[in-house]
Amino acid sequence: MKQTTLADIRLIDVPEVHDKRGSLVVIENDTFAFNIERVYYLYDVPTGSKRGGHAHRQLYQLLIPLSGSFDVYLSDGISERTFFLNKPNKALLIVPGIWREISNFSSGSVCLVIASSKYDENDYIRDYDLFLKSKI
Rank of each mutant, 00 (worst) to 15 (best):
V72K: 02
F84Q: 13
D76P: 03
L74M: 03
L74F: 12
E80T: 06
D71S: 12
S75I: 02
L85R: 07
D76F: 05
D76I: 05
P88N: 08
V72Q: 01
I94Y: 11
S79D: 11
I78F: 15
L66P: 00
E80P: 05
I78Y: 15
F83C: 01
L85H: 13
T82W: 12
E80C: 00
L74S: 01
L74G: 07
F84M: 12
L74C: 09
L85F: 15
T82R: 14
F70L: 10
K87E: 05
G68K: 08
T82A: 06
P65V: 01
G68V: 03
Y73A: 02
S69A: 12
F84H: 15
S69C: 08
F83Y: 14
R81F: 14
S75L: 09
Y73V: 05
A91K: 06
I94R: 09
A91L: 13
T82F: 03
D71F: 13
Y73N: 06
L92Y: 15
L92T: 09
I78S: 12
L66R: 10
T82P: 00
A91E: 09
L66F: 10
T82C: 07
S79P: 03
P65R: 02
E80M: 04
R81P: 05
I94T: 04
L92P: 09
L93T: 10
G77P: 00
E80K: 01
F83V: 03
F70K: 01
F70A: 11
L92A: 15
P65G: 14
S67Y: 03
D76H: 08
P88I: 11
F83D: 05
S69F: 14
S69Y: 01
G77Y: 12
S79W: 13
L66D: 11
G77I: 03
I94E: 09
T82H: 06
L74T: 05
G68M: 00
L85T: 13
G68Q: 06
S75M: 12
S79A: 08
V72D: 04
F70G: 04
D76C: 03
G68T: 07
D71E: 09
K90I: 06
D76T: 08
D71H: 13
D76R: 08
P65W: 02
I78R: 12
G68W: 11
N89A: 06
S79K: 14
Y73S: 00
S75A: 02
F83T: 05
S67K: 08
D71M: 08
R81K: 13
Y73C: 00
N86D: 15
N86V: 07
P88H: 07
F70D: 13
P88Y: 11
L66I: 12
K87Q: 09
L74K: 06
F84K: 12
L85S: 15
N86S: 15
K87R: 07
L85V: 15
F70I: 02
P88F: 03
L93M: 06
P88Q: 06
V72F: 05
I78W: 07
P65F: 01
F83A: 08
